[in-house]
């Protein structure tokens, strides 16, 4: 554990808190992509299968929080707040993301065991799971400020993992190329968003695309 990893995980927790806070206070999930949220649940369930055979207090607790909160968000979106979700603007074709992640997982896992292939699948899928959400923001041309805070916190989490990986490599030669490549791709996908978030939202203006 190092400060970058800890900060990254905290941003991940903050993003989930912001998302649930936004939904429960506004009683609405407008502006949130159901498809991205469904992909995240798929990511957590396929990555954290090792909950059944590995226990570490910090990691296991976080894993349960991520799976549980993700399932809760989907419950809110399909149950109480379903009328506020507009499927007509949530039209990204996720089958290509799932298919691409599945192909990469089958071709290049660390080991060809079901758990390792699913772990690799989750790493690749996470790297692109935000795309339906970013696509939705792009289609509508604007986003509520709280939604932009959510996307920022979620992006900051994986961005902070990059110095964490550098630190771990330098201090213990820990080296996880799959996570690193996918994590860098994930961060790059957020980069446009980060730029607009920085130049607009942080200066008190609304998040609107040029």
């Amino acid at each position: 554990m190092n400060i970058f990893r800890l900060a990254g995980d905290l941003f991940h927790l903050i993003s989930i808190f912001i998302l649930i806070h936004k939904m429960t206070t506004s009683k609405s999930c407008s502006g949130i992509s159901f498809k991205s949220q469904a992909l995240y649940l798929l990511v957590y369930v396929t990555r954290y299968l090792d909950l059944f055979w590995t226990f570490a207090l910090y990691n296991s607790t976080m894993k349960i929080i991520f799976i549980g909160s993700s399932a809760y968000v989907l419950h809110l979106m399909t149950g109480p707040f379903k009328p506020t979700h507009d499927p007509n603007i949530d039209t990204f074709k996720v089958r290509y993301l799932i298919g691409g992640a599945a192909i990469l997982a089958l071709l290049f896992p660390y080991k060809w065991t079901p758990a390792e292939v699913l772990w690799t699948f989750s790493i690749w899928l996470e790297s692109v799971a935000i795309l339906p959400q970013l696509f939705m923001v792009q289609r509508t041309g604007a986003a509520e400020t709280i939604t932009t805070h959510y996307i920022f916190a979620l992006g900051a989490y994986r961005a902070l993992y990059i110095p964490n990986w550098i630190y771990r490599y330098l201090t213990s030669t820990f080296w996880d190329p799959l996570s690193i490549i996918a994590g860098v791709i994930q961060t790059v996908l957020y980069s446009d968003f980060f730029y607009i978030y920085y130049t607009k939202v942080l200066q008190g203006r609304k998040f609107e695309l040029p």
């Binding site: 990555r47 990691n59 894993k63 758990a115 080296w175 996570s179």
Partner: peptide
């Protein structure tokens, strides 16, 4: 050398 399934991150 890879991480070889030693997944101690989230």
């Amino acid at each position: 050398e890879g991480n070889e399934g030693n997944h101690d991150e989230l």
